[in-house]
Nucleic acid binder design. Sequence first.
DNA 1: CGAAACCGACCGACTGGTCGGTTTGCTTTC
DNA 2: GAAAGCAAACCGACCAGTCGGTCGGTTTCG
Lengths: 203, 203
Amino acid sequence: MAVRTPQFSHDALLDAAEAVIHEHGIATLTLDAVAARAGVSKGGLMYHFRSKDLLLEAMVNRIVERWRKDADEAIDRLPKGPGRVARGVLSTCLEKPDCGGAAMRRSGVVLVTALASNPALIKPLREAHTELLKRAEKDGLEPGASATVILALSGLWFERIFGLSEMTPKRRQDLLSSLRTVASSVRTVKRAGRATSSRTRKS
Amino acid sequence: MAVRTPQFSHDALLDAAEAVIHEHGIATLTLDAVAARAGVSKGGLMYHFRSKDLLLEAMVNRIVERWRKDADEAIDRLPKGPGRVARGVLSTCLEKPDCGGAAMRRSGVVLVTALASNPALIKPLREAHTELLKRAEKDGLEPGASATVILALSGLWFERIFGLSEMTPKRRQDLLSSLRTVASSVRTVKRAGRATSSRTRKS
DNA sequence: CGAAACCGACCGACTGGTCGGTTTGCTTTC
DNA sequence: GAAAGCAAACCGACCAGTCGGTCGGTTTCG
């Protein structure tokens, strides 16, 4: 059937598109540029993606899917219990030494850039984000605590993407300890509509 | 000197540019579109902004400047004391009923969109953000606490811009109480490289 | 040989920027 | 006080280049 394995080409073309965006910005993302970068002709590119929009859509979907998978795995790796979601996301975004490394930043830049140029592409990201928030909500922490952690990490993610601030070891450490505190504010008894928190400190 | 009062002020033209971006996306931001929206000819537009890049730059600068001013005023309005910065930002971004209203979202969308299309425009935003973080750092809270609040609110800001999630009254309330807790974790004695926190609860 | 995979010249639409010209209203001159 | 002068403000047809997409053909594998 497949004369040349289409899947390989498919991914390679998306890689090329990401590279172009990452290196020169969305303004230079032309079909010619992607084709050249992938070492293929424009016709070859168009054979796999019938339009630029479809190319962008596939690129965004791939990034979101990878990101969602990473987060899920990090959460599943943790033992069950209150704050599991928050700590899982925390581990993917702040604890691993390489996290927020070149690859993550790159995909973030590409994603945001693509979204800005075509807002309709937001759908998969919205779904992933909503799902994560929903999962975090019933994770046994103080109401709002999981959301705080997730939002702060989202903020950090965007900060990296846009290059808004540097990440020094001290800053990372401070943030980490602050967020860990929040991520361990276990929900206790609810009284008069406001729960009180008991904070467990990790070693 | 000025013989004729400019019929089209810079502000009006920038408003038009923002409107075009907000309503139809950056892809449709052509000089012709801006001119038409402002009720001016292309030549008239070009007379005020000699290139599209300069137009975008002015637009971004104006947005960042307004945002910075809002934040500063909110902080200054608060009594001095630990956590003032965090609480000030909190009040601009989450407490006011209209905050995150149409105007804020609009400017955010425009800003992000413009930045994605021309990363060099990031500079003023980076400076404002860095300045805010620096100010927050020495605000008398636990290390990382101010940053957590600011990052979470940044995350919220981006969430709104991209339309990633709804803001229900309950969610707002939960977030608010969680962030207020963090914003009141006053720094106490530092021990063995890790400070302990004393949290004061507001009425 | 047949179909999938790929090629690249070409087209039409669009866009940023130019430029010669026109309008407008203040100032100067008589 | 009005005619002339002048420069800021504005106009819009036009140009040169770009880009998404097409299409008839060629190559490659099974």
